[in-house]
């Protein structure tokens, strides 16, 4: 449906979901226009929470369990699934787990395809988060694709990163060594009813102690909701502390730089697509790219 800019802006200001949904589509299809629209809207700082972990670990389920216990909050959910590198198509199935909240007035769930981005996010993730901050949400949960180690980009986007682990994973510890450990602000071990969970808990605790890291670990069960209240409380406390001590402001400053970098990268990528591939000389290709970039800028 065609909507004018002023319709969209007015619609969002009046809290109409349909217009906000359109803004998110613009984030995906035309980020420059989205940034322009967003700059015309009032923003309200929301806690941006990334949730990452390998496939099948229960990322959507944990978000659903949080939704179950957050009736009084306004929450946004960004669920990212991979696009096919061959066809560009994508199956966005994360919603299935959260569908019982689809009609909730306070929650807004939106699926994104990774559209060629590596790092487990969507190319428009920065814009999408900013957009959510114009819609008056308290927190935004960002569920990454979950391909493991490469999902570290989330640390540049979110204020808080939750790394989700499951005792069924097996090689979780191996995986953590490889990078997720660096980005985790909170660890959550899901499926606390599994007897192996306690073992994973103590293993992880040991590793963290050895590397002198003070990162909280939670045991949760997304079916029964055990441990979820605690997790929610910790997230809230952490956010207000970050607001108070200025660390959020610091993070957000860095985030702006990353956002600009992402925009520039996209532009450069597009320029490379226009370069004639007949030549073999790398240097020449490079020169031409720089020339084109300079012209564009």
């Amino acid at each position: 449906m065609q909507m004018s800019e002023s319709q969209i802006l007015d619609g969002i200001r009046s809290g109409n979901r349909k217009y906000f949904a359109k803004l998110l589509s613009i984030c995906e299809d035309d980020p420059a226009k989205a940034n322009h629209l967003i700059s015309n809207l009032e923003k309200h700082t929301a806690h941006l929470i990334g949730i990452t972990g390998s496939p099948g670990v229960g990322k959507s389920s944990i978000i659903n369990a949080i939704l179950d216990k957050s009736d009084d909050k306004r929450l946004g959910i960004i669920a990212i699934d991979p696009s096919s590198p061959f066809t560009g198509g994508a199956l966005l199935g994360d919603r299935i787990r959260m569908q019982s909240h689809a009609t909730s007035k306070n929650f807004f769930i939106r699926s994104f395809a990774s559209r060629g981005t590596v790092g487990g996010l969507s190319p428009s993730i920065f814009e999408a988060c900013d957009a959510f901050e114009t819609f008056g949400v308290d927190s935004v949960f960002i569920e990454t694709v979950g391909v493991g180690q490469s999902d570290v980009e989330i640390a540049n986007v979110a204020d808080t990163v939750i790394v989700l682990l499951s005792p069924d994973g097996g090689d979780e510890i191996q995986m953590m060594k490889a990078g997720l450990m660096e980005i985790a602000d909170i660890f959550v071990i899901n499926k606390s009813d599994n007897p192996l969970s306690k073992g994973l808990f103590s293993k992880l605790k040991n590793i963290l102690e050895m590397s002198k890291k003070d990162i909280p670990i939670f045991l949760t069960n997304s079916i029964t909701g055990d441990g979820i209240d605690n997790l929610i409380k910790t997230l809230e406390k952490r956010f207000s502390l970050m607001l108070e001590n200025g660390s959020l402001a610091e993070k957000r400053k860095k985030r702006v730089v990353k956002h600009a970098q992402a925009i520039l990268r996209k532009k450069i990528d597009r320029i490379f697509e226009t370069i004639n591939a007949d030549r073999l000389n790398i240097e020449e290709i490079e020169k031409e790219a720089i020339r084109k970039i300079c012209n564009k800028l």
Partner: peptide
């Protein structure tokens, strides 16, 4: 539909 290049959301 995915294989035809579309983005598909499935509700369950």
């Amino acid at each position: 539909l995915r294989d035809a290049g579309m983005e598909v959301i499935y509700t369950g």
